[in-house]
């Protein structure tokens, strides 16, 4: 495993830990509540939609 992959794994592990903490009654925001509050803003929803378009096209079509 390269150092870069190790950092990616560390970041994924941190995200998983935060997800677990958010569902364990700590002060960490639940991802669903956080993203729901963010995309309630029309501008943020539009940006997220454009990122979603780009990710789909980049990963699966191009």
């Amino acid at each position: 495993m390269t150092a870069s992959l190790a950092v990616w794994a560390l970041l994924a592990g941190t995200a998983a830990l935060l997800w677990a903490l958010s569902h364990a009654g700590t002060k960490v925001a639940r991802p669903g509540a956080l993203t729901g509050a963010l995309v309630a803003r029309p501008a943020v929803r539009m940006v997220v939609a454009l990122v979603w378009v780009w990710v789909g096209w980049h990963l699966f079509a191009r």
Partner: peptide, 16 residues
């Protein structure tokens, strides 16, 4: 439908 009053961002957002 979404151009309404924004919901408050929950506490504990900064680790994410």
């Amino acid at each position: 439908r979404w151009a309404t009053v924004p919901r408050a961002v929950p506490e504990g957002w900064w680790p994410w």
